[in-house]
Amino acid sequence: MNVEVQSHNQSPISRRRALQLTGASVAAATLAAPLAPAFSQDGGAWDKVFPKSDRVDHQKVTFKNRYGIALVGDLYLPKDRASRRLPALAVGGPFGAVKEQSSGLYAQTMAERGFVTLAFDPSYTGESGGKPRNIASPDINTEDFSAVVDYIGRHTAVDRERIGVIGICGWGGMALNAVAVDKRVKAVAVSTMYDMSRLMSKGYNDSVTLEQRTQTLEQLNRQRWEDAEKGTPAYGPPTNELKGGEPKFLVDYHDYYKTPRGFHPRAVNSNASWSVTTPLSFMNMPLLTYIKEISPRPVLLIHGEKAHSRYFSETAYAAAAEPRELMIIPGASHTDLYDRVDVIPFDKLTSFFTRHLAEGRQ
């Protein structure tokens, strides 16, 4: 067991009891008209929210998941790779983001450090396929990670016996779920992880009562009648808009998704929203049911000391089997681990995957 804290002055973060976001309220807070997918088969003009590295090669790639949905990803390869077969990483997240944002930054940075990496747009979002748009699914989005493994494991630059996964924010929970069932993956790291099934079914800090959950399900199922009659899902007001008085973590989301720091027109959280009924499948399909089955493969959980979401990683760590590590970053908020390169522990990620994806290790 390994719990790593980079400070001896850690204090518990306060829990906002007043925030009892159910699945419906999460959806209601993140709704707007969706964008159609835009398929591009080459690298094209640099459209990321982070600078392009001159130490890696970049390529836009397209492949299909097990359900036949076309996924679009950004493949990053170290320029000094020569003819070697390298370890590889599938990188996804955050929930409502696109590959041009946080996952692309992680992927490019890890490619600079010697890994072949692929950041992808999940099904129904970004440049990936699937209709209607801006739908999330605990099953299909778990499958998306395995589809990346399918693709990257067949690349000529990759040693398919040395594949790892990085999941960020809401795709951290998806990543853990995928690795539990996909034994081809040899190691997994999650950063500022959200368990979206827990959040949507129980609210923040598990504060939703059975009565509130029942009311939410009744509301969502009434919405299904309306969607069925219209033939299209309902969407609502834009996500991450501020009216004043919001908790700090919502202000932090706005600061990343709605400003030049991280805005991207294809991101649900920047310029669109989820369908109203997106929470339904999350509310009775817990993502981390089989987290123990990741063992004996290693799990690394990274979270900010001051993140409102820190308890997700703490309870996932408690539920996981050895070998497992929990790394708490002093002073860091949830979104600091999206793009603050001086805060994200890339050295730790590098050493973790170098050790556990070592050549000849099974």
Rank of each mutant, 00 (worst) to 15 (best):
A157V: 04
I140L: 14
D227L: 07
R154Y: 00
I135V: 11
R198A: 13
T354R: 13
T192C: 15
I302W: 01
P51G: 01
S281H: 06
D74E: 12
S7V: 08
P279H: 08
V116E: 00
S275F: 01
K79A: 07
L287F: 10
A33H: 09
G203S: 08
L210T: 10
Y76P: 01
I328E: 00
T216D: 15
Y235L: 07
R222M: 09
T354Y: 03
M283C: 04
P298W: 10
I166P: 08
N205F: 12
G262H: 03
Y256R: 08
L288A: 07
A178S: 15
Y67F: 13
V299Y: 04
L301Q: 05
G73N: 05
M285Y: 07
N177A: 15
G126C: 09
G244Q: 07
G236Y: 05
A136T: 13
S270L: 12
I69E: 05
L89E: 02
F63A: 03
M200D: 00
G245T: 09
Q223H: 00
L280F: 05
K292Y: 04
T62K: 07
L199Q: 11
M327V: 05
W274Q: 02
R55C: 02
R133S: 03
D54Y: 00
L287E: 13
K258A: 08
G164Y: 07
L326E: 08
T30L: 10
D144V: 11
G44F: 08
F50V: 03
V188W: 04
M110H: 06
S128C: 09
S103K: 08
I163N: 06
Q6M: 06
I291N: 07
K48G: 06
R324L: 01
R113W: 03
E112C: 06
L77K: 15
E293C: 00
L280R: 05
Y76D: 09
V148P: 03
A175C: 09
R16Q: 11
D42T: 14
Y194L: 13
R310M: 04
G129W: 07
L21Q: 14
Y124W: 15
R297P: 05
E322H: 07
G104W: 10
G203C: 07
A82C: 03
G172A: 08
D57A: 12
A97D: 15
Y124T: 05
A24P: 01
L118E: 03
V91T: 05
L300E: 04
K131L: 14
V3A: 05
M193V: 15
D339M: 03
E293W: 06
E325Q: 14
G164P: 11
S207H: 10
D255M: 05
V208P: 02
Q101G: 08
D80I: 05
I166S: 08
A24H: 01
M285I: 01
A157Q: 13
A18C: 06
P323C: 03
S103D: 09
Y257E: 03
A36Y: 10
V91G: 10
E127A: 14
Y106W: 12
T354G: 08
I140Y: 03
A119E: 05
R133E: 12
P233R: 08
F63W: 11
A316M: 06
P237Q: 09
S83V: 07
T239Q: 14
T232R: 08
Y256Q: 06
